[in-house]
Amino acid sequence: MFPPIYEVCAADAGVQAALGTPVRLYPFGEAPHGVALPYTVWQTLGGSPDNFLKQRPDIDQFTLQVDVYASTATAARAAARSLRDAIEPVAYITRWNGEDRDDETKNYRVSFDVDWWVPR
Score class of each variant (00 low, 15 high):
Arg56Trp: 04
Asp115Phe: 03
Leu19Met: 05
Lys106Val: 07
Gly46Ile: 01
Asp50Glu: 15
Asp58Ile: 15
Pro32Glu: 10
Phe112Asp: 00
Ala31Phe: 02
Asp85Gln: 14
Ala13Tyr: 11
Ala78Trp: 04
Arg81Glu: 15
Ala10Pro: 05
Asp115Val: 10
Pro57Phe: 05
Asn107Pro: 02
Thr105Leu: 04
Pro3Ser: 13
Tyr92Val: 13
Phe112Met: 03
Thr21His: 11
Gln16Asn: 04
Gln65Ser: 09
Thr21Leu: 13
Thr72Glu: 04
Tyr26Val: 10
Tyr69Lys: 14
Ala10Cys: 09
Val114Met: 00
Asp60His: 15
Val8Lys: 12
Gly20Lys: 08
Glu104Lys: 02
Gln55Ile: 10
Asp100Tyr: 15
Arg84Gly: 06
Tyr92Gln: 13
Asp85His: 12
Glu88Leu: 15
Pro32Phe: 14
Glu88Ala: 13
Ala91Met: 07
Pro119Phe: 12
Pro38Gln: 01
Ala36Tyr: 00
Arg84Tyr: 11
Leu37Trp: 03
Phe112Arg: 01
Glu99Gln: 14
Leu37Tyr: 06
Glu7Tyr: 06
Val8Asp: 12
Cys9Phe: 07
Ala80Tyr: 00
Asp50Phe: 09
Ala79Gly: 05
Trp117Cys: 11
Gln61Asp: 10
Thr21Tyr: 11
Gln16Ile: 06
Glu99Cys: 03
Ala11Tyr: 07
Trp42Ile: 01
Ala18Leu: 04
Asp67Met: 06
Pro89Lys: 10
Asp113Thr: 02
Ala86Leu: 03
Tyr69Arg: 14
Leu45Thr: 07
Leu53His: 09
Ala11Leu: 09
Tyr69Ile: 04
Leu53Thr: 15
Ala11Thr: 08
Gly20Cys: 07
Ser71His: 05
Arg77Ala: 02
Ala31Ser: 12
Val66Ser: 08
Ala18Ser: 08
Ile87Leu: 08
His33Lys: 13
Pro22Asp: 10
Ser48Cys: 11
Glu104Tyr: 02
Arg77Ser: 01
Val90Cys: 03
Thr21Arg: 13
Met1Lys: 11
Ala18Gly: 05
Ile59Val: 15
Gln61Met: 14
